[in-house]
Design a protein around this nucleic acid. Structure first.
Lengths: 192, 192
DNA sequence: CCCACATGAGACATTCTTGTCTCATGCCGG
DNA sequence: CCGGCATGAGACAAGAATGTCTCATGTGGG
């Protein structure tokens, strides 16, 4: 098993690098490759050995974000039970990825090219389908389109991630804040 | 009135330049000074004559955004009538500025320095006060903090602006989508 | 008619980032 | 103990963006 042996030499964990890059880029989306490398605890040269360039790094982050979104969609079993409960499970499952998604959401460079990652289309379809199911079952109102609810979910995840990062809301309240606002809104319910 | 006379020579309308810059930067936040100049229909040299540099341009956009927000806050008379109606008037008044706000919202460079424009604090205070008033009057639920509602309003304005810009939601539905989601949420109300 | 002034075009140096390269170091396995 | 390999440090060139400059142009007002 020689190919396993030299893994002990690999002090660089690709996944770990992407995570720290996501944290930094969420806070400062224009961070340089050098800053990303320092944040990950390695040199710029080594960072370049693992990711051909800044573009490749962003693409890798995109793939990571897509993978985490799809995992969250699967874990939340969005096609089972009441749609409202499914949304709650989904937001909870996406919470750890919120920072990364906030970065990708504002990286509009990813979406201006004609060849955008098809993963987003699959995720959008999953989210849209969930909201559409909720409308058909009578749980959700029909004057808010599934497309807008999907967009709003992205926006609230990003806002929540930033608000938590800057200490304006408590991290523990993240899921509650987003789910309750997305589903129930700010108005008090008359009936208990 | 010599100082009025040469105004006729000023083909460059500072306000107009800022508007076109806002539109471009909302779509591509990394646009160069040259691109901004072209979008405004003038040369890079002239753009530099009116705004000392890119930083000054962004600062001017920030001032414009703050001014428009404060104007919207004043126009919406957020201290009069039901808080829910005040929120509706406010979102309607902020709609034209949503694109600019979306750009400023993601320009975190504006907020990392210790000397951030005090205008944001005033606007935050106005918004927070509105949501707090709604809570005290019993209109709004109390488990969603005014700080979070303020943050969510920013996020939804940005999401709405992008969704409209990319054609995912109709421009005419902008205010309705945001206000209804922010106040009422996605769930159907039981009582009419 | 002529002058003042704003503009456009472009040259230029500077700075920053990127991408690639080389070389020395250190550590693990054999 | 020794060789291979990943890493760190740094040099280097290429490219892009910025900021500043000069000069020519055209237009409007006096």
């Amino acid at each position: 098993m020689s190919h396993v042996g030299y893994r002990c030499l690999m002090a660089v964990d690709r996944e770990q690098v992407l995570r720290s890059a996501a944290i930094l880029l969420t806070r400062k989306s224009t961070a340089t490759m050098d800053e990303v490398a320092r944040a990950a605890g390695l040199s710029r040269a080594t960072l370049h050995r693992h990711f051909a360039g800044r573009d490749a790094l962003v693409r890798a982050l995109e793939s990571l974000g897509i993978a985490e979104c799809e995992a969250a969609l699967a874990a939340a079993r969005t096609d089972e039970g009441p749609a409202a409960e499914a949304v709650r499970r989904l937001v909870r499952a996406m919470e750890p990825s919120a920072g990364l998604l906030a970065f990708l959401y504002t990286e509009n460079q990813l979406f201006e090219g004609e060849e955008q990652n098809e993963g987003w289309a699959r995720i959008d379809a999953g989210l849209t389908e969930l909201f559409r199911r909720g409308q058909e079952s009578g749980e959700f109102r029909i004057d808010l389109t599934p497309a807008w609810l999907t967009e709003a979910l992205y926006g609230l995840l990003a806002s929540g991630a930033w608000a938590v990062a800057e200490g304006r809301v408590a991290r523990n309240d993240f899921t509650h804040m987003i789910v309750e606002l997305l589903l129930g809104g700010a108005l008090r319910r008359e009936e208990p």
